[in-house]
Amino acid sequence: NLRWTSEAKTKLKNIPFFARSQAKARIEQLARQAEQDIVTPELVEQARLEFG
């Protein structure tokens, strides 16, 4: 299971509600691909840039 830093959680809250669950799934996918067990603000930002 993935842990989220408080900064990453804050960044996730800045994503519009309607896109948040999809973004969260993508962020967690990116973390797993990078073999990380902690979601960082950088991963959230990477996903945000993908979504535009």
Rank of each mutant, 00 (worst) to 15 (best):
R32H: 08
L49I: 11
A31V: 06
A25W: 10
R48D: 05
L49H: 09
P41F: 05
Q46D: 04
N1F: 12
Q36V: 14
R26T: 06
V39G: 00
R20Q: 08
A31C: 06
A47E: 05
W4V: 00
P41S: 12
K11I: 13
T40W: 04
G52M: 15
I38R: 04
A31N: 00
F18A: 10
T40H: 03
I38E: 08
K13P: 01
A8Y: 00
S21C: 09
A8W: 01
I15S: 02
Q33S: 09
K24T: 06
K13I: 06
E35L: 13
V39S: 00
E35T: 07
E45F: 05
F18T: 06
A23K: 02
E7G: 11
R20P: 02
I27A: 15
R32D: 03
K13F: 12
L2H: 02
I15P: 03
K24D: 01
R32C: 05
A47D: 05
Q29S: 08
L30D: 02
F17H: 11
E45L: 07
T10N: 14
I27M: 02
E50H: 04
A34M: 15
A47G: 06
A47Q: 03
K13A: 11
I38P: 08
P16D: 04
S21Y: 07
Q29Y: 11
Q36A: 10
R20L: 06
R32G: 03
A31M: 03
G52Y: 13
E45N: 07
D37K: 12
N1T: 13
A25C: 08
E45A: 08
R3T: 15
N14Q: 15
D37P: 08
S6D: 15
A31Q: 01
R48C: 08
K9H: 07
V39I: 14
L49E: 08
K24R: 09
E50Y: 09
S21T: 10
Q46G: 03
A19C: 11
F18E: 10
K13Q: 13
Q22P: 04
E42C: 04
V39H: 00
L12G: 01
T40K: 03
N1V: 13
K24L: 10
A47R: 02
P16C: 06
T5H: 04
L49V: 10
F51N: 06
L43T: 04
K9W: 14
E28I: 07
L30W: 08
K24M: 11
L43E: 01
T10Q: 15
Q33H: 08
W4Q: 00
E45V: 06
R26H: 12
E45I: 06
A31L: 03
W4I: 00
L30S: 02
Q46C: 05
V39P: 00
K9I: 14
F51W: 12
K13E: 13
Q29R: 08
N1C: 08
A8M: 01
Q29N: 07
Q36G: 04
A31Y: 01
E7S: 07
E50M: 12
I15Q: 02
I15A: 03
E45W: 06
A23F: 13
E50S: 08
L30E: 02
Q33W: 10
E7Y: 04
Q46F: 10
R3S: 10
P41D: 07
A47S: 06
A19I: 15
K9Y: 13
K11T: 06
W4D: 00
R20V: 04
I38A: 05
Q33K: 11
K11S: 12
N1I: 14
W4S: 00
S21G: 11
Q29L: 10
E28M: 04
F17Q: 10
F51E: 04
E28D: 03
T40E: 03
A8V: 01
R20S: 03
I15M: 06
S6Y: 11
E50G: 07
